[in-house]
Design a protein around this nucleic acid. Sequence first.
DNA 1: CGGGAGGCTGAGAGCGCTCCCGGCGAACGG
DNA 2: CCGTTCGCCGGGAGCGCTCTCAGCCTCCCG
Lengths: 347, 347
Amino acid sequence: MPEQLPGHRPTLEAVAERAGVSRATASRVVNGGDGVRAHLVEKVREAVLELGYVPNPAARTLVTRRTGAVAVIIAEPEIRIFSDPFFSRQIRGISKELTAHDTQLVLLLVEDRGDYDRIERYLAGGHVDGALAFSLHTDDPLPAITRRVGMPTVYGGRPGWTAGSGEHGGIAYVDADNRGGAREAVRHLLDRGRRRIAHIAGPLDQTSAVDRLDGYRDVLLDADPALIAEGDFTATGGAEAMAALLERCPDLDAVFAANDLMATGALRVLRERGLAVPADVALVGFDDAELVAETADPPLTTVRQDIEGMGRLMAQLLLRTLNREQGDRAVPASVVTPTALVRRGSS
Amino acid sequence: MPEQLPGHRPTLEAVAERAGVSRATASRVVNGGDGVRAHLVEKVREAVLELGYVPNPAARTLVTRRTGAVAVIIAEPEIRIFSDPFFSRQIRGISKELTAHDTQLVLLLVEDRGDYDRIERYLAGGHVDGALAFSLHTDDPLPAITRRVGMPTVYGGRPGWTAGSGEHGGIAYVDADNRGGAREAVRHLLDRGRRRIAHIAGPLDQTSAVDRLDGYRDVLLDADPALIAEGDFTATGGAEAMAALLERCPDLDAVFAANDLMATGALRVLRERGLAVPADVALVGFDDAELVAETADPPLTTVRQDIEGMGRLMAQLLLRTLNREQGDRAVPASVVTPTALVRRGSS
DNA sequence: CGGGAGGCTGAGAGCGCTCCCGGCGAACGG
DNA sequence: CCGTTCGCCGGGAGCGCTCTCAGCCTCCCG
């Protein structure tokens, strides 16, 4: 590519002049070249290359009312956000899909509740065409905001308050089959002959945690409530929950943890107490988190979900909505992706 | 905030009309209100509120030639990117600082080498005012790109090829005092009476790994080369390196790992071999990674760096550069932040 | 009381692009 | 050979904003 010319960047006007055509024709070529005779297309392309022309996105946005950018809103006040590989992989999937469609990713991190004003102003300002948001908690103000400013939004993870469609059209989301995956995990433990199967749940203000707990209960209809402890999706939380469970039910012979991080915490506590995994206690996690599940000792049996694929799906859903005609108000259907049990040494 | 009005968003023109002033005056008020009489300011502010006016960023950018956005380029093809808490915390710091200055964060993930063309086009397109980039490898094409398109850039971590100032002005970066921190770690092990101190280095195409190795050598001038093994900053890599070290030097009595993730891998191998930490082998890590160093068993002695602060610093440096007058070509000075040894149970 | 200075305001140009629409030439049918 | 259609191109308006500059009005000083 040519060096930046001194002074200002070349404009479409300059390209047109050099190619000996009008600005309109130059614009047509830059945007695909339909309806322009071949030799003119060629001339304009040359001029673009020679001048090192790059379209000015602001000018383009001003008239098309499209920014070619999408906001990714992460409203997780905790450190988890990135350190949980879950988010990183989902973002990676999103990024790939957006990139493939020449769309930019604007990252909006929410630190505290006051930030929501900023988010609202930002979305209302028309900086982006749509938004992707994650794992809402039950009282999250985000849906109200996106609705108010009319911003097309796709959520990652089923939102808390809407089982079906809300009052004003449903909300689009992409989620894994948490409940089904949990069922499979527990059934697997039953198949292994386990009878006192405990569950370390995630924070129950998140639907993924609730769904996994529900899946556990689906299979263990008469489960002893003492066999259920709530964690917070971190290793430390998992360890604490495990300790509490052992206190209450020393006879347990299996644990289904709602994610792999908590499973590793549980693993540590079990080892400390001299309990062998899986001989004394079988353990199953959830997520198949890289650098965690496989490298655990013993490697974790876990429920895999295609996290990166879910990210891609979120982006696809959003982009499809954005590319619909203006009048078309239909909300895209939500998608639930399948899970799969991965058997390793811990069960 | 008022609901989105039917049809189009209100423009500055509409605000001006409603307030009974000219568009110019309305603009002045929206941008701070200097030099406008108080009662007019009041009137315009009211009109803004009543109409729910939000400035159109594209129009503004078109004339000011400022986008109010900064690119964060992450060119780490590995999974590490986010799962290494290092990046997440740095991004968090960056995000905080940018938010405080009303600047947006555009995330650019580089998946493979072909992506660099896309990055170059993006930067050349003037979508952003500046860029922040991370941990360059020695042959990274990024510096050439940012220079070519004249994009102000601050790097996280000292770039590989430029010890001092390059041919055309130096490159601004923010880095921790890796070498000094490493020296302190090794001295600490010496103070504990250790004499056969091994080092698990990071990938030596990254300057942070090189600097930490150099710090190790600064203190152990006559270190046995067999005591040094190269890892890759992951737990698995650390485990492999540890195994290799034990193979070569069964008599080692201490290990300084170039990061905490590798230290945990080493820890696992040591335990497997029946070696007690710190009784048989003392262990020191680097980073003070959350959810890793403190929760390890035993908790890791490690070298803490203020990662989030480094992120903030990167953003500050960049913003300062951007707010300089156009003519001022000076590159901001790079910053090296201090480290501190945190003593825990592993040494 | 006149003149100059200085503070506010408004008119208007213009940022770089897209897209509507009118015109023009070629092609084709009668 | 003329009228009509159709494909292609250029002129020009306009997206919403900022900013310069000229003009006005007030105030102060001589």
